[in-house]
Amino acid sequence: MLIWWYKYLNNYSNNISYISFRAIFSLLTAFFINLFIGPYFIKFFRKIQQYQIIRKNGPKNHYTKNNTPTIGGLFIIISIVVSTILYCDLSNNYVWYVISVLLSYGLIGYLDDYKKIKYNNSWGLTPFCKYFLLSIVALGIIYTMYNDSEKVISTQLIIPFFKKNIEINYLHIFLSYFVIVGTSNAVNLTDGLDGLAIMPVILLACGFTLISLLSIDIKNSNYLNVDYIQNSNELVVLCTAIIGSGLGFLWFNSYPAKIFMGDIGSLSLGGCLGTMAILLHQELLLIIMGGVFVFETISVILQIISFKIRKKRIFKMAPIHHHYEMKGILEPIIVVRFWIISLILLLISLISLKVC
């Protein structure tokens, strides 16, 4: 919005139109918004008793978290949207695709959280209802992107570590669907310990910030394993808003957490990161960068398959972070080690952008 005012009034410093200026201020604005409104949200949610519902078959040490407020993802979404409106060029379609998924998945997540709190159980929406709603939004966004006159979606798949693209034609529709819905649910599964999910989200946003910057430079895109995407510049500002908002939320979500993001936060953040991966043509790189989310999801799938077929569990409990809890590893240690793994995976992903 500020960039529109600058173009219209021409009274601001030229710095307002620079990506670096807007990206930094977007990060700081989102961070300080969360830092300011966080205590009010926590106090308000305590007052109306919007507490986290702990699953009965979960680790016993989680029962002490019953009085911790949830739905903290609400102020994550607020800070991201405010920063985006302030510093992004809102005529850029890429911004609206990501924000649409953020808000839509946030609403679905809120319905899920609300049902859990209302009926005092950990079930929320039925799996069918949840996946149906997530799928409708994902397919609607994908359809819109495919019909965009700016050709925002590429049917060529970039292979990490190899400067090679594979044409997959209409299979890309199915890939895009699984990227958006799958990433959303993967972040949701990972959000089980204090601060566990938000740091990998921040690191993913950092990776997409760099890729967005590289994508708008035709020389870099030819040299590196990224596509030249002319209008991806505004994703830089949006990514830094996610980083700032995530850091602001982590201020309250670090161990011992004063608030949880809930499904409203995990579903929305996962969905918008999946959408960014599609817009930047880095669907496979997302699997490496978001490896922690992938491991968590695979652990759940393997646990279900093993129990269905062999009537035995592979892990003491799934997702896998609960397995380590059951083995007696302290929660803060598990969380920090998962953060370290996320950082290492991010660095490996960045190496893949450089092709010999």
Score class of each variant (00 low, 15 high):
residue 44 F to Q: 04
residue 52 Q to P: 02
residue 43 K to W: 04
residue 40 Y to P: 02
residue 59 P to S: 09
residue 43 K to V: 00
residue 54 I to Y: 06
residue 52 Q to V: 03
residue 63 Y to R: 13
residue 39 P to V: 10
residue 60 K to P: 12
residue 44 F to D: 09
residue 49 Q to D: 15
residue 36 F to V: 10
residue 62 H to V: 12
residue 31 F to R: 03
residue 39 P to H: 07
residue 49 Q to N: 13
residue 59 P to A: 00
residue 58 G to A: 08
residue 30 A to L: 05
residue 31 F to Q: 09
residue 39 P to D: 11
residue 66 N to G: 14
residue 64 T to E: 15
residue 45 F to C: 02
residue 52 Q to L: 05
residue 46 R to T: 03
residue 58 G to T: 12
residue 48 I to E: 11
residue 43 K to A: 12
residue 40 Y to G: 08
residue 52 Q to I: 04
residue 64 T to W: 15
residue 41 F to G: 02
residue 59 P to F: 07
residue 62 H to N: 08
residue 48 I to C: 12
residue 48 I to L: 08
residue 56 K to W: 07
residue 65 K to F: 05
residue 36 F to H: 00
residue 41 F to C: 03
residue 37 I to C: 01
residue 37 I to W: 11
residue 63 Y to L: 13
residue 31 F to I: 13
residue 35 L to T: 06
residue 46 R to K: 14
residue 64 T to C: 14
residue 34 N to P: 08
residue 63 Y to A: 03
residue 65 K to A: 02
residue 43 K to M: 01
residue 64 T to N: 15
residue 30 A to F: 00
residue 42 I to T: 00
residue 40 Y to S: 12
residue 55 R to K: 07
residue 48 I to W: 07
residue 43 K to E: 09
residue 44 F to M: 03
residue 41 F to L: 10
residue 35 L to E: 09
residue 30 A to P: 01
residue 57 N to K: 05
residue 36 F to A: 14
residue 29 T to A: 15
residue 52 Q to T: 02
residue 39 P to K: 13
residue 65 K to Q: 07
residue 52 Q to Y: 14
residue 36 F to Q: 07
residue 63 Y to N: 08
residue 37 I to E: 01
residue 44 F to K: 11
residue 66 N to W: 06
residue 50 Q to R: 10
residue 59 P to C: 05
residue 50 Q to W: 05
residue 48 I to P: 06
residue 59 P to G: 00
residue 46 R to S: 08
residue 38 G to K: 00
residue 39 P to G: 08
residue 45 F to H: 04
residue 45 F to T: 01
residue 56 K to Q: 15
residue 41 F to P: 00
residue 45 F to L: 09
residue 34 N to C: 11
residue 66 N to F: 04
residue 38 G to Y: 03
residue 42 I to Y: 02
residue 34 N to H: 05
residue 47 K to Y: 06
residue 61 N to E: 15
residue 59 P to W: 12
residue 47 K to M: 07
residue 33 I to K: 06
residue 46 R to Y: 09
residue 30 A to T: 00
residue 60 K to S: 10
residue 36 F to D: 08
residue 58 G to F: 02
residue 64 T to F: 11
residue 46 R to I: 10
residue 31 F to D: 11
residue 44 F to G: 03
residue 62 H to M: 06
residue 65 K to L: 07
residue 39 P to C: 05
residue 50 Q to F: 05
residue 66 N to A: 12
residue 44 F to C: 08
residue 45 F to A: 04
residue 64 T to Q: 13
residue 56 K to V: 10
residue 47 K to Q: 01
residue 37 I to Y: 04
residue 38 G to F: 03
residue 57 N to C: 11
residue 66 N to L: 12
residue 46 R to G: 07
residue 30 A to Q: 04
residue 40 Y to K: 02
residue 56 K to G: 03
residue 44 F to N: 01
residue 59 P to T: 11
residue 35 L to K: 04
residue 33 I to G: 10
residue 34 N to M: 06
residue 34 N to K: 09
residue 42 I to D: 01
residue 32 F to P: 00
residue 63 Y to E: 15
residue 54 I to P: 14
residue 50 Q to K: 02
residue 42 I to H: 14
residue 47 K to L: 12
residue 43 K to G: 05
residue 58 G to I: 11
residue 42 I to A: 12
residue 64 T to K: 14
